[in-house]
Design a protein around this nucleic acid. Structure first.
Lengths: 204, 204
DNA sequence: ACCTGAACACCGTTCAAGT
DNA sequence: ACCTGAACACCGTTCAAGT
């Protein structure tokens, strides 16, 4: 098919092309299911512009991927925090975040793969705290609160938060990459595993 | 550099080229750290043969990757079972397999990525049980034995085995893909998480 | 039986040029 | 200020041919 020609932007409208590029790249990345799916030339075709025009807004393919990833991480984190906000009990807040993590990852397997399994690494300023880190800290704080109230046994809340992260990432990642395995319901699995890691119901 | 020319094989020595190709492909896959690192042409150059010669032994790039993956899965599984064989206690056998899994994954990040995060899916005959599945079953059986002896609380051993798999895969995968995060010792993390998931030390 | 030369359609990226 | 034409060195894959 001939590339849908795009009418030339006027002065000051260069920003619009940048937005269009990010949007098209996100769609391509999600559809293809991996960073392999995202090509500079393919994105240019989708936007209706020459491959070289990409370099007016992005230094290279990596920079474009980073722009897409920034949006994804912010979005995913906000979804997780929104899920946590519906509960008062710190244990339920932690489990709700885990379910939101898995739900988002399963709904966006292509983007998730680039976010958590791709070679493009998000780079942050020295003082900047990435959104994912904030969520991890929130989990750690909720675990600490649950310990303080005697809801779960004492332990190292930071280590538990990392174990919970590994569990949910492991479930999303394995499910996506080993589709032939007879997976049990990942949400139930994450809830059960999360409770076990936190020690919910373990004899005090 | 000029491709190191390889002397032509005699009749019946075509098998040797096949072996050389798989070996070179494994090295390239490990060095590059991802399937992206493995190119048909690059492997051909490393072996000292023309790109077209690859098609004498492999239908396409995917088939070559599958040949490498078959060896990797068999090797990793045998390492895990060897680690388990050093213990009598079923709980310790499970934890030993987890440590072996993580140790292998961290020692071979490039191969691990292709095995568990790549788009190339290993295909098995209807009746064939892949080596990784056998290890998972062995874990499930050890968990069952630990329950039967009262070492850990009762529960669904199959679900616990999957949770343990997700935990160790999650640790290896996240560690490889988020190198900027201040990771605690993954072996200690896997041991602690594994004990919690199995309910070791939980009040009976 | 074993392997290569030449070609095709892709890719990221660069440089000079056009409006 | 905004964008493209033409080119370079890569890639997987195919087809016809060489020893």
């Amino acid at each position: 098919m001939p590339p849908a020609a795009r009418e030339r932007n006027r002065r000051g409208e260069g920003e619009r092309l940048r937005e269009d590029i990010i949007e098209a790249a996100t769609a391509l990345m999600e559809r293809a299911g991996c960073d392999e799916g995202l090509t500079l030339r393919g994105t240019a075709r989708a936007v209706g512009v020459s491959p070289q025009a990409m370099y007016l807004h992005f230094d290279d393919l990596t920079t474009l991927v980073l722009a897409v990833l920034g949006r994804c991480h912010a979005l995913m984190s906000s979804v997780m925090e929104a899920a946590a906000a519906e509960w008062d009990d710190p244990v339920e807040r932690v489990l709700a975040r885990g379910r939101a993590y898995i739900t988002w990852g399963m709904a966006n397997p292509g983007l998730y793969q680039v976010m958590y399994e791709g070679r493009v690494q998000a780079v942050h300023e020295p003082g900047e705290v990435p959104p994912g880190r904030k969520v991890l800290w929130a989990v750690r704080d909720d675990v600490t609160a649950a310990m303080a109230s005697g809801r779960i046994p004492e332990g190292d809340a930071g280590l538990i938060a990392v174990q919970l992260w590994a569990l949910v990432h492991g479930l999303v990642s394995l499910r996506a990459n080993k589709p032939h395995f007879p997976w049990p319901d990942p949400l139930a699995l994450a809830d059960a595993g999360g409770r076990r890691i936190m020690g919910v119901g373990a004899g005090s």
